[in-house]
Design a protein around this nucleic acid. Structure first.
Lengths: 339, 339
DNA sequence: TATGTTAGCACAAAGGATTGTGCAAACGGG
DNA sequence: CCCGTTTGCACAATCCTTTGTGCTAACATA
């Protein structure tokens, strides 16, 4: 190509050495006592030639790529689709690029993707881990890679994380159901070993127990955050005797699947079954009935996650103990029936 | 770091030169007549040491980064949120990484992002351009960067693209409305200069004219694909006299905004106003009423786009004339009233 | 034996920026 | 006038891989 303007060419034209050009362009002119005259000459020429330093070469030398990795289990899930752009936007403003990986909720894809990102020498990683394994992440942290967990975390591992108060969300939702007179409350869960799922189930269980309602393990059904899982498990639950009068869906997609199943069983929400979704979406208000849901502050989650990461990228290794559980909010709409 | 295993170290340990190691690891052993013995030694050692070649150094030399750029106006829009993971997934399988940029529908952000991607030496670009300018893209193509447009394109510019049949979608929808007896049909448009918007408006207009209904410019309202725009413009339209009896919303988010506005005006869908959304979403079926919409095959759009790009990355510059308009489908549900 | 092949690999440049070290000139103080 | 300090910058190594060129030794051919 002919876009091959390099440091060296500028150096030759100005009649100085590469190092001088490099220092000027990196704003280190003062630090290295480059004369104002030389500095101006270089800056002017660089502008004229439209010089763009080759980041590959710079990274090769500095071991910094100004790139972060963003690893998400399912970008098409509105929850994550809401988070991704805020992280990307903040990164752009901070001068970082984002390498995106979608793991499809598969541990192997996650491991591969993370390895790929690492060999590309990302400076930091924001990840909503699948959650089945953490060894690959620990290994990277040992090697000095700043990592921030988002949405999901590992309770016993010292990663910085930002998530929402999943326990509380589920607890509040179930308590509300109980207040409305429900006793037969089933839980449609997502991926069992993920922290949000575990805490939501724990909240569900605690609320039942605090109300003196026996916990029934069979009524924690399902194994994935996707729509099909909600559909499938609800079809089964709706044939149970006694039939649950209320459902807590542990993701917005699960709730969608549950609604589809309920309709196909020719039952009505909330007349026959009440439903609460974890993770509110704006369009829930237009559902028939408007769907009661637990809202997570996902904008803020993204914001905080990138803030944490940028902080680690700056102060390198001040051993922060960054951890955040953002409050959630039960949005009462029309999908819960008073018994 | 101690992860600093390099080609050279392996070369030293084996007692050969760097080049030999490089060639072996790149599968060029045969081509350069490396002895089977040497080859095995190198491969074995590389495996043992868990050697990972530094892609920065390789890219610096080869001018290939095995990275593509993906530039999207609004990742949080379910339409794009659906496309992104399929592109990312295909890239992963093909050995490419994806640098993601969200332009927030702003030309300046797009220009900056594309420039950034270029200086990072991406091998190819998939972009749903904001559409206001194309010069920066043309410039890159001159420089040899393979570019594929998705969703939006430039009718007069020779970029490969894959989009859907926007004209037909709008035409069919409006024709359906007319068949249902509607005459006062307004159009809530998105970003005016984008190709999908223009073609949808054209389809809207053509359907009206083919039915002998006069086209009213004031009833093509709005300027953005987001929810707020649909809300705002609908509030205004609902006060118009005569009030439109049907609305064609040119994005799923606009439709959401329209619904919110209609509700706040204490009107009913479809009793007072009928509504059709461009771009179907699974959750539309649960709306009150279930929302009639024009479905786009976004999975296939993503698939084809990455297929086109990979083809260009392989055959470098066979001058393909790749262009694809995928068929759309009107999904009739309950948001249109028979008059 | 002299020459031609071929196998097998080494050498060094290239790719482009960064940075630690050090040198020469200018300047200031005594 | 001499020595010490500061100014202003050059040099060359470094980061790591890829690749064009070409050398040496072994073997074959005549």
């Amino acid at each position: 190509m002919n876009d091959a303007i390099t440091l060296r060419k500028i150096a030759e034209m100005v009649g100085c050495s590469d190092s001088t050009v490099s220092r000027v362009l990196n704003g280190k002119a003062r630090q290295y006592r480059i004369s104002a005259e030389t500095e101006q000459q270089i800056l002017k020429l660089a502008k004229e030639l439209n010089f763009v330093p080759n980041p590959l070469a710079a990274s090769l030398r500095t071991h910094r790529t100004l790139t972060i990795g963003l690893v998400i289990p399912d970008v098409s899930n509105p929850f994550f689709a809401g988070i991704v752009p805020v992280i990307q936007g903040q990164c752009r403003k901070a001068g970082y690029s984002v390498l995106l990986a979608n793991t499809e909720e598969k541990t192997r894809v996650e491991v591969d993707s993370v390895a790929m990102l690492h060999k590309r020498q990302i400076d930091g990683l924001i990840i909503a881990p699948v959650g089945e394994r953490f060894d690959h992440l620990l290994e990277l942290r040992e090697k000095g890679l700043p990592i921030v967990l988002i949405d999901r975390y590992a309770p016993d591992l010292p990663f910085p994380y930002v998530t929402s108060d999943n326990f509380r969300g589920a607890y509040d939702a179930v308590t509300y159901l109980i207040e409305c007179g429900h006793v037969h409350i089933a839980c449609l869960q997502g991926v069992p070993y993920t922290s949000p799922n575990q805490e939501r189930v724990a909240g569900y269980r605690q609320a039942l127990e605090d109300a003196g309602i026996p916990f029934n393990e069979d009524w924690v059904a399902g194994d994935s955050f996707i729509e099909e899982n909600g559909y499938y498990e609800t079809r089964i639950l709706m044939k149970d005797v006694p039939r649950p009068t209320a459902l807590l869906a542990l993701s917005n997609l699960i709730a969608l699947g549950a609604m589809r199943a309920v309709h196909e069983e020719h039952l009505r929400i909330p007349a026959d079954v009440s439903l609460i979704a974890f993770d509110d979406q704006p369009f829930f208000q237009f559902f028939q009935p408007p769907l009661t849901a637990i809202a997570q502050p996902y904008q803020e989650m993204g914001q905080k996650a990138i803030e944490y990461l940028l902080r680690e990228l700056k102060d390198s290794h001040e051993p922060h103990k960054l951890a955040l559980k953002l409050p959630v909010k039960l949005i009462r709409r029309g999908s819960v029936k008073m018994l």
